[in-house]
Design a protein around this nucleic acid. Structure first.
Lengths: 224, 224
DNA sequence: GTCTATATTGGGATAGAC
DNA sequence: GTCTATCCCAATATAGAC
């Protein structure tokens, strides 16, 4: 049984120029898997549906990723790594300014990377989706991909809000994450409200809400 | 094919005292389904696992509920109906006072019923779980069970917060729901934080957070 | 590295005896 | 209303030719 989990080391034979329309098989599988995971969730999506959508053979998925879970891990990591990098970059920039960070700036560093440049980017919804999966599937992945970033932002929030108890900050950061997931998980929110009109506006609205919730006495900047 | 969707009209033959240990078959199936849906989610749970846990025959599930989806609908409705009733009762009581409702009281009416009397109640987590299911499964159910209550609370919030635009209220109520779901969905939150210590405290914390987020200029009552 | 073919398991649903 | 037995299908995964 060949590679099955070599993520970075691409080994396609440049020599013979093994053609494939544009993307190679591995990428085509990742793209299809990502789209279907977003639409239907992980458990509800079959490998057959993925490979058929990718226009590749069923066995190719196993060859490249070893298992369905391996494929999920690879698809997820591909999107989350740049997200984490952007978040930490923004956080480090804030901390480098010397003075204690501002809660609004922290929330912006945490949430704004989700808006991204490309409104068509599937990354946010992929992230949101995973939180709904059965714990056995989601928990190890979420732990692996997010725990470090979460811990660093939590620590920075404690500096930014010295008058709040750590417990309260913990709860409220937790709620911010919940609101974020809810925003990301659905194209059209299922309930209990009709979709707020402009989805691109969601992140900005969430930043406001988060800051108000975390630090109720700060002056509101963007309130209408 | 017999009933399959008669929810209320119980038709067990009282005549011959058809014994079953304590609960009748239908209830046993509902209990088992509920527990497994909470633990694993809907798609990941098989009818066989449900009936085996309930100690009843596989065919009994089909006899009583018609299909796996029918069973989910019944299990969900059994818990949501009392929740909705409690919420609307509290809302009506507030509105009956004559003056415009207060945002904190509204959030309390909306969220406090989730705390319930019984800390072991599976209802909150069942509600939280359903939001993570594939849209095809969850959306019709959520729509059916929650749209009316959501609309009524949204209308009341508009009265309570006349200085906020309806769009902002819509977004923020949406975020409150997201934070609520996140709180309900997990026994132990998966990420990105360790579980805040006392889960019974979660609803109270969420009420504070919600009110601050919705109405940043109101005086904070319970802030530590 | 990609394919065909297949092994193997488990799913939802139903027929029909009791 | 409850059971046994079974149908039928789809799933993950693998073996082995090319």
């Amino acid at each position: 049984m060949p590679p099955a989990s070599a993520s970075g080391a691409s080994k396609r034979p440049r020599s013979a120029a093994r053609k494939r329309n544009a993307a190679d098989t591995k990428t085509r599988i990742l793209d299809a898997a990502e789209a279907l995971f977003i639409e239907q969730g992980f458990v509800a999506t079959s490998l057959r549906a993925i490979t058929s959508r990718a226009g590749v053979n069923l066995a190719a998925a196993h060859y490249h990723f070893g298992s369905k879970e391996g494929l999920l891990g690879a698809a997820f990591h591909r999107r989350v790594e740049p997200l984490n990098a952007t978040r930490l970059e923004a956080l480090d920039a804030l901390l480098a300014e010397g003075h204690p960070p501002d809660a609004r700036e922290l929330m912006r560093a945490f949430l704004e990377p989700l808006a991204g440049v490309d409104p068509e980017s599937p990354m946010p919804r992929l992230v949101g989706r995973l939180f709904g999966e059965p714990d056995a599937v989601a928990r190890p992945l979420l732990e692996r991909e997010f725990s470090e970033v979460a811990a660093r932002f939590f620590a920075a929030l404690r500096e930014a809000l010295p008058d709040q108890s750590p417990e309260v900050i913990r709860w409220r950061f937790y709620f911010v994450v919940g609101a974020m997931i809810h925003l990301l998980a659905f194209d059209k929110p299922p309930v209990p409200l009709e979709p707020p009109v402009d989805p691109a506006d969601g992140i900005e609205q969430l930043i406001d809400f988060a800051v108000n919730g975390l630090d109720p006495h700060a002056e509101s900047v963007r309130d209408v």
